Computed example of a mutant assay.
Amino acid sequence: MKTCLIIDEAPVIRKIAFRLLSREGLDVDTLEKPGEALAWIDNHGAPDILVVGVSARDKAVVEEIKAVRERAGSSTHLVAMIVEANLGLMTRLKRAGVECYLYKPFDRAALDAVLKRFMEPETVLA
């Protein structure tokens, strides 16, 4: 079963994403801050998908995401939840290891559209 870690300061975002992704068959856990993810990864291993809420106001978030990317490794798919298209922030996030973006507020269709490619079963080459 694929694992997903959702990180966002807003409890309602964590709750909605948890419910939607759990219904998709993922093993989901949630955290409030990106800095908490390092200890989570040490205790549970790297998640398959990491969805992190990002605010342009939080200047430390890009560095925290870099640290999480380094700890989780390249096999973890990293998605940033953002409120608006901010080219500067999006560029810094891309450099930190973010693969794609999900705009808040989101609905089931938007979440499915962004995460669909990461939730498909791995194909093993013989």
Rank of each mutant, 00 (worst) to 15 (best):
residue 106 F to Q: 01
residue 1 M to P: 11
residue 111 L to R: 02
residue 39 A to Q: 13
residue 77 H to K: 14
residue 81 M to C: 09
residue 82 I to A: 09
residue 73 G to Q: 10
residue 6 I to Q: 05
residue 38 L to M: 06
residue 34 P to D: 06
residue 60 A to N: 12
residue 115 L to M: 10
residue 96 A to W: 00
residue 106 F to E: 03
residue 89 L to T: 08
residue 9 E to I: 15
residue 115 L to G: 00
residue 114 V to S: 02
residue 111 L to M: 15
residue 7 I to Q: 00
residue 66 K to V: 04
residue 81 M to P: 01
residue 118 F to C: 03
residue 98 V to P: 04
residue 87 L to T: 10
residue 80 A to W: 03
residue 96 A to F: 00
residue 116 K to V: 08
residue 8 D to N: 14
residue 123 T to H: 11
residue 103 Y to N: 11
residue 118 F to E: 03
residue 94 K to N: 09
residue 120 E to I: 08
residue 50 L to T: 04
residue 11 P to Y: 08
residue 120 E to C: 07
residue 26 L to R: 04
residue 88 G to F: 09
residue 58 D to C: 06
residue 23 R to D: 15
residue 25 G to L: 07
residue 9 E to C: 10
residue 94 K to S: 15
residue 87 L to P: 05
residue 104 K to R: 14
residue 3 T to D: 05
residue 72 A to W: 00
residue 37 A to P: 05
residue 122 E to I: 11
residue 50 L to S: 03
residue 98 V to S: 04
residue 55 S to H: 10
residue 53 G to Y: 04
residue 17 A to N: 02
residue 110 A to Q: 12
residue 28 V to F: 09
residue 51 V to L: 14
residue 24 E to V: 06
residue 73 G to C: 08
residue 3 T to F: 01
residue 33 K to M: 11
residue 4 C to A: 15
residue 112 D to E: 15
residue 2 K to L: 12
residue 94 K to H: 15
residue 44 H to V: 05
